[in-house]
Design a protein around this nucleic acid. Structure first.
Length: 581
RNA sequence: GCGCCGAUGGUCUAGUGGCUAUGACUGGGGCCUUCCAAGCCCUAAACCCGGGUUCGAAUCCCGGUUGGCGCACCA
């Protein structure tokens, strides 16, 4: 049984993760989060919110999970989020149709399926495996399709990423942030991809949770005002060049920016934030690295892109966060498809007085002379410089033919114009988190099978402990009467109630021996167990047991809830919080 | 989507054509018990789904679902 199996088995048994639709046999690519799983996931998301929404100030929005066709035409998902597949009629092997004709035509990936079929037929392309005849090419789009409204209603798609919701709302967001860059929006929610063959459990899902931030910045200023916060932070960088040699480097973020390894400060700051977040929820720092996309792997519009990768026992390095500079690609695409200007007006500190050379073609003369080509002639004239227009003969080239334009058909002048600002299209910095993979990694890195042997014992003793960080542990406190006796159960119930009032998630358990109950709580990662014994009845004190060290302290019952709250969310030290036992 | 291998209580598992389907752990109830899976009693709980072969199928055959591995895919 490898580590993955151990973690998944525990997750299943203890109510973290369940296969969806299990009583009907289940379906690949879907998982339910059980009671403890939902709680853990929500605590992870809540820390993400604290960082991105509260601290960074990128407010959360909520857009529909179903999108209309235009949105995904603009985003490129309708055309590009699919692959043309082509199967051999003989051996039934499936191939990428565009790859089959790569050598025959120059831009194979731009061809439609019909054109691909034509190229395959005309060139007699056969199955590369067995030489058999190839079947018709079909498009396999990874988006789930649905219909909006009854009958032949509008085509809709389940969103394959939450990002588009933020781009589509750009104008409203810009207004909300009073037209000042930089600003950002975030979204935590479900996305959908109809994976061809999902495997690897929760690592590859058809319905999954993303947490994404789209940060709109001034393209001419990619510094980050708060960069100092992470300047000295060391991270494991696996850059494009490093991947060729296979050697990862540990480097401070300021060093990485200075050397040009990371394109700019703003991106480096985001890497710093991601590093901070992942470590805070319990990812082991030696199993975390940032890998730069190779030039050929990066989306064509991105300038630089880094993936946070976490090392797992079975799947090796798994991509959990993508941090990209998407430039102005998305805003331009939506602007063009929607016919809406998506830009920010940036006023100059001082209005600029610009002298500009203006060409004024006289259409009443050009029209009769050039007829249908008059417009092209005028456009060509507008591009000419003063010296060219002052020559005795003005010649232009239209449709490969030289033509002469009479001097009286074109006028030009120098004008003085006052420009007080300009419209700019912001660049987008996008950190995109795959919450389900992070959830699993948190489980795996928290999992520990602890074995030890005391001097007298021959057999090994063992316990399974989920060493969750206090902040993410689903159950925060266990309240355990030492014995099943009324005089201990009664004060236990009062203590449970007082801890609940503080907002902590508390589990009460009085079944079986105390040792068994400690083990049960170790297995779900409860950080602290409060035990009520006969001393409690006598002097109103209880013991608190620390999950990781199994050490105990004795503290008064009176402010037990505040004390536990401080241990979980504050800086309190366990050992100094009470009298050691 | 293809190939190979698997699927038995909550978990792990025995069972290769024939008794009421094996065992352990876990869970629940109780007894006992003053701090790390102790003991005793009681108890709940399973043959992935659908067809077929057979007097009889958890077992053999076919199809499906699902899991693992390999191939393919992974904007």
């Amino acid at each position: 049984m490898d580590r993955y199996e151990q973690v998944i088995e525990l997750a299943k048994r203890r109510g973290f993760l369940w296969k969806s639709f299990e009583i009907y046999g289940g379906t690949a690519g879907f998982y339910d989060y059980g009671p403890l799983g939902s709680t853990l996931k929500r605590r992870i998301e809540q820390i993400w919110r604290e960082i991105y929404v509260i601290h960074e100030g990128y407010m959360e929005i909520e857009a529909p999970t179903i999108g209309i066709e235009e949105v995904f035409v603009a985003s490129g998902h309708v055309g590009g989020f699919s692959d043309p597949l082509c199967e051999c009629k003989c051996c039934e092997e499936a191939f990428r149709a565009d790859h089959l004709v790569d050598d025959i035509v120059t831009c194979a990936d731009g061809l439609h399926i019909k054109e691909l079929d034509r190229v395959i037929a005309e060139n007699g392309v056969k199955c590369p495996e067995c030489g058999g005849e190839l079947g018709k090419t079909y498009e396999f789009n990874l988006m789930f399709k649905t219909n909006i409204g009854p009958g032949s209603g509008r085509q809709g798609y389940m969103r394959p990423e939450t990002a588009q919701g933020m781009f589509v709302d750009f104008m409203r967001l810009a207004r909300f942030y009073r037209d000042k860059l930089p600003f950002g929006a975030t979204q935590i929610g479900k996305s959908y991809r109809n994976e061809i063959s999902p495997r690897q459990g929760v690592i590859r899902l058809r319905e999954f949770t993303q947490a994404e931030a789209e940060i709109f910045i001034d393209p001419s200023n990619k510094e980050h005002p708060n960069f100092q916060r992470f300047a000295a932070t060391s991270v494991n960088l696996y850059s494009d060049e490093a991947q060729d040699t296979g050697v990862m480097e540990s480097m401070t973020l300021s060093e990485a920016v200075r050397r040009g390894t990371i394109a700019h400060e703003f991106l480096a700051y985001q890497i710093g934030l991601t590093d901070y977040f992942l470590k805070r929820i319990g990812i082991a720092s030696d199993k975390l690295r940032f890998r730069q996309h190779k030039k050929d792997e990066m989306a064509h519009y991105a300038i630089d892109c880094w993936d946070a990768e976490i090392e797992t026992a079975r799947f090796g390095w798994v991509e959990v966060v993508g941090i990209a500079d998407r430039t102005d690609y998305d805003l331009k695409a939506h602007a063009s498809i929607s016919n809406t200007e998506l830009s920010i007006y940036r006023e100059y500190t001082e209005p600029r007085i610009v002298r500009s050379f203006v060409v004024k073609p006289d259409m009443s003369k050009l029209g009769p002379l050039f007829k249908g080509k008059a417009k092209d002639v005028a456009e060509a004239l507008k591009l000419m410089r003063q010296e060219e227009l002052e020559k005795d003969r003005i010649t232009i080239i239209i449709d490969g033919e030289e033509a002469e334009v009479p001097k009286e058909a074109v006028d030009f002048t120098e004008e003085t114009v006052k420009i007080s600002g300009e419209n700019i299209i912001p660049h987008v910095i996008e950190p995109s988190y795959g919450i389900d993979r992070i959830f699993y990694s948190t489980m795996e890195h928290a999992f520990e099978e602890e074995k030890w042997r005391t001097e007298e014992e021959v057999d090994e003793d063992a316990r399974i402990v989920m060493r969750f960080k206090n902040e993410v542990a689903p159950v925060q406190v266990a309240v355990l009467p030492l014995l099943t006796r009324d005089e201990l159960i009664r004060p236990s119930r009062d203590i449970k109630a007082s801890i609940k009032r503080k907002g902590l998630l508390v589990a009460y358990d009085d079944s079986g021996t105390i040792g068994r109950r400690y083990r049960r709580n170790d297995e779900i990662g409860t950080p602290y167990s409060v035990t009520i014994d006969y001393d409690t009845v006598e002097n109103n004190t209880v013991t608190i047991r620390d999950r990781d060290s199994m050490k105990q302290i004795r503290v008064p019952v009176d402010n037990i809830a505040d004390l536990l709250y401080g241990l979980i969310y504050g800086d309190s030290e366990f050992e100094s919080a009470g009298e050691a036992l």
